[in-house]
Design a protein around this nucleic acid. Structure first.
Lengths: 356, 356
DNA sequence: ACCTCTATAGTTAACGATTTCTATGCAAGC
DNA sequence: GCTTGCATAGAAATCGTTAACTATAGAGGT
């Protein structure tokens, strides 16, 4: 007689097997479809599966056969505009490759990040994607290298998204985008419009690789045009609206001479715009403003922001794709993705009479 | 002699046991800390754990002892501003309760949603959180009820976030916010400013419970002030910027008389603002505009948007909290969260000479 | 007729932990 | 001195599935 599964318990292969008069192995084979089973048997098994509303136990499957089809995504927080897009890309590619996606947030706490990586090792995630700028400190690099090795030994893969590579002999997948190139391009654009006094708003956090790259591009563009690299850089300690707003007000109050502001991120730029508007300055007639990231906000600002487009979603997709489809024994992987300037309304030619 | 784990394999309790000269049971007990173990033994085991860099296998643990500590989060997409906040809240609460968070996106495909729920059943997720407006159709309700029962039987819990409840005898947790109340409040605010010709921009998708609620609040506010409920409603088929923009242009082109626009969402409002500005109309001097949701964008718009604040993050937290800490045998749970009007700069008193 | 091969199905042992049950040594109580 | 009881540790069963062997019929070749 068919074994009656206890109420509240979910049916197992054994229940299905009993109910359809075959062995558990056969049920497994029908479900996996990787072994010849007669049509009649298959039909009986499928019928029992439907009647019992059987679903497989993913844990047991992972334990017995192939691993967990899981990718982990560790991020500062989910609501940051660029983070969300990377996450979207990671989830998309994970799904496309038949994996599920675990997501965790660190809220910027490095200890928490370590805990989470450990947790993901327990979970046997096939890839652990870390997103967001890390610092370039020695301890950071050492710790990441150690983690990369530990994950590798567990059959997993460390993926760094928008962080600097660790070294050629470290088993990790790194996907970056061209911070320096984008900053170079958009600075050149401002210079070509006639601007000579450009403020880079976003220094002040040395070691932050994303910002460092952008600053490098900014300086390189000045050198390429035989301009002295301006040391005039407004400090925006935190990279939020408020700090962009305050830094701009301070700049104006100090009577600094400038005709354009290069905000290190679009979010900072949104604060800059508010401060300029409050000061009665028109953008771009009086002052030009550009940003970086091209988050959706950029088109909602007034005026619409000229900025550098980064395809964050593709960044996430590429990260997962490379991590899962790498050559066995491929140690270090490193990809740099391109970016491009998006010209909108917030930057214009130099005003004729230097207004300030 | 200590068993040498094969290279590439991760060490197991057995390896740790062999290496420290105790049984697997003892290792398990040291790690779990739920059974007396002598100090000396504990030290030896911990040393072996550290030396072998042992991490537990979450799958095996789930299979043997307690279930998977996992909550699933199924959402339209990750980049929607309100979705991201709900996700943040879900992840936060899940972490606070010692759970991990699986996240999947449907991109609006109901079939995909079904597949994902099935997948989550396989994963034994303790709760499955569904976010985003569903329709109120009969088939939808039936299907959800069936799913709720299936999940319940598997020991899991269906959680509906911002969707209508299914019924008192359906095992599900529902967390909504007060769409109608918020719309009532902000409409009353507009009326108190003197507005009598208010356009509700966002009809046209009957059965969408979120929008229906807001529309109901809009109409009820008119009734409460002895005003005839205006049938003048601009249709915004899709709830994005573009449709808000177009609908507003059409409205102006048709020469419709109105002094205020109630956009069904902040995103729609951002499109409305662009269209009004292009038409040379000032906000709020000529036309008042209000939105709904209070996403971060609301403070980046020009002028800053008066809108209804919804605490999406708290919504996500509440959903998880209720799902995990419910009474055993509690069938239906239903919570409605409050919202409140946030007054900023986009709505003002009725202009003296009716400009249009 | 005999042997081999293939299609089909079952047995049994992993997988890596937890969780009863047992079992021992040693202190305390009578 | 003998039972009682607690602290400590191990053996074995269990969770649900897969994979590696085994086993049995017929089909087809010689």
């Amino acid at each position: 007689m068919a074994r009656q599964p206890a109420s509240g318990d979910r049916p197992t292969v054994k229940d299905v097997a009993a109910s359809s008069g075959v062995s558990a192995t056969t049920v497994s084979r029908v479900l996996a479809g990787n072994y010849p089973v007669s049509t009649a048997t298959r039909a009986r098994v499928m019928k029992a599966v439907r009647e019992l509303d059987y679903v497989i136990n993913a844990q047991a499957r992972a334990l017995g056969g192939g691993g967990t089809k899981t990718v982990a995504f560790i991020v500062h927080d989910l609501v940051g505009p660029s983070f969300a897009y990377v996450g979207q890309g990671v989830e998309q590619q994970a799904t496309a490759e038949g994996r599920l996606c675990l997501v965790c947030t660190t809220h910027g706490d490095p200890e928490r990040e370590l805990e989470l990586i450990e947790l993901m090792r327990e979970q046997q995630a096939e890839a652990v994607v870390l997103v967001g700028g890390g610092t370039n400190s020695r301890t950071y690099l050492e710790r990441m290298t150690q983690i990369a090795r530990a994950l590798d030994k567990s059959g997993s893969r460390l993926v760094l998204c928008g962080r600097p590579p660790l070294g050629p002999d470290v088993p990790a997948t790194v996907v970056e985008y061209d911070n320096e190139g984008g900053a170079y391009a958009i600075t050149s654009y401002l210079i070509s419009l006639g601007h000579r006094d450009i403020v880079f708003m976003g220094a002040g956090e040395p070691g932050h690789t994303t910002i460092d790259g952008r600053l490098r591009g900014f300086e390189r563009a000045h050198q390429a045009h035989q301009l002295s690299a301006p040391s005039q850089q407004a400090v925006a300690i935190t990279f939020d609206r408020q700090s962009g707003y305050r830094a701009t007000r301070d700049l104006l109050a100090a009577g600094r001479k400038f005709t354009a502001i290069f905000a290190a991120t679009d979010v900072v730029a949104s604060g800059v715009l508010v401060a300029l508007r409050e000061a009665g300055l028109r953008v771009p007639e009086d002052i030009s403003v550009v940003g970086y990231d091209d988050i959706p906000l950029a088109t909602d600002l007034t005026p619409m922001l000229t900025t550098v487009h980064v395809d964050y979603e593709e960044l996430g997709r590429t990260a997962v794709r490379h991590a899962l489809n790498r050559d066995r024994h491929a140690m270090s992987q490193h990809t740099v993705m391109g970016v491009h300037v998006v010209i909108r309304d917030s930057a214009g030619p130099l005003p004729k009479p230097a207004r300030r």
